[in-house]
Amino acid sequence: MTIKRKLKQYTNVKKLLKTSRKIHKWLMLFIGIQFVIWSMTGAYMVFFDIDYIHGDTLVVNHQDKINPHDIQYSLSTLFSEYPSAENIRLSTFLQQTVYRFVVNTEKGPAQFLLDARSGKTLSPISESKAIAAAHYYSRLGKVKSVVLITDNPPFELSLRVLPAWRINFDDFGAPSIYISQATGELVGKRHTFWRLFDWMFRFHVMDYGDAEDVGNWLLFVVAFFAILGCLLGLIMTWFLVVKPFKNKAVSNKNKPRGVL
């Protein structure tokens, strides 16, 4: 390569670097903060085990077996009293064999909880029973507060499972256990780390509205310019860090040894 050509290439690279630096600098003034948010929220999600986040360690997966002799109230009796019962299931709830089922009414589905011995209705679940259930489903310590949620559920609870008892525990990570008032079933579990995770996710996908939506236009616009900024950054990395390093290695290798 002639000196002239080398010089020309050098000025081209210099121009490219100058433009890259300028655009990278200006882009980051506007979207740099989102880069920080992406890497902080991303790191949070990566470092906390997702099963821990989902509260799998908060709850006990009981394997209490049904005693068939407990079922004194037969299914045929159940159907004679509740002819349109659906989704019928039998299991153990607080050392008691119980029926659970749904009856679809004009006002929507109604959930039932019956004692399988007597056929007596066990719901709605009382506060003390809900606390007992929360202790049964979890290994958590002292109860801090109990709330019955009938409408406007918090972000972490599905509208479908209402009405539900929220039992807040005085334990590590401020855990809450949600018990359905109609069936006594465990319908939710949350702790600080999951609540934080939800926020991290929303910031990660730039969902600053109220729906958890990855397909929003704000994310698209910022990600588009972010890709541009990232490419320009990589150009600088190549010409300012990788290439000089390589050249240095090459010139070191070509250096005459033993002299000096």
């Binding site: 209490d64 049904i66 068939p68 002799h69 079922i71 037969s74 989704n87 299931r89 039998l90 299991s91």
Partner: peptide
């Protein structure tokens, strides 16, 4: 009847 079914099989946590 579910109780009859339960008696004939290994013990169960739930029957649906």
């Amino acid at each position: 009847e579910p109780s009859m079914v339960l008696l004939k099989h290994q013990s169960s946590v739930a029957i649906e």
